[in-house]
């Protein structure tokens, strides 16, 4: 799988990371190295082996459906850039 500069720009845009042309070329080289490592691993025949999700044989723990979180919005909002009427304010987004 070969990655192009265009792919790098697109990935950066989707991740909302500003990347200039020099950096893009650097990332292309680094990411291509990672991809070839993945390709190498994928050449191993894993037919019939269920993918692992954890090094140990463990499952998701569930909690009971109970409300235990107090209202801490004042403390949370004390570090927000802008707040009004209990709402967090952000630059306008509109469809």
């Amino acid at each position: 799988m070969s990655l192009t500069l265009e792919d790098v720009r697109r990935i950066a845009h989707l991740a909302r990371i500003a990347v200039d042309e020099n950096e893009a070329a650097d990332y292309l080289r680094q990411l291509s190295g990672i991809f070839s490592l993945i390709e190498e691993m994928q050449s191993v025949d894993t037919t019939g082996i269920e993918p692992m999700s954890h090094a140990q044989d463990v499952w998701l723990r569930l909690r009971e459906d109970e409300v235990t979180e107090p209202d801490r919005h004042e403390s949370f909002q004390s570090v927000a850039p802008q707040v009004e009427a209990g709402l967090y304010l952000v630059p306008k987004v509109m469809e």
Partner: peptide, 11 residues
């Protein structure tokens, strides 16, 4: 999207 001085309020 009501007018919060040209900003959007998030709940």
């Amino acid at each position: 999207h009501e007018d919060f001085h040209g900003m959007t309020g998030i709940d």
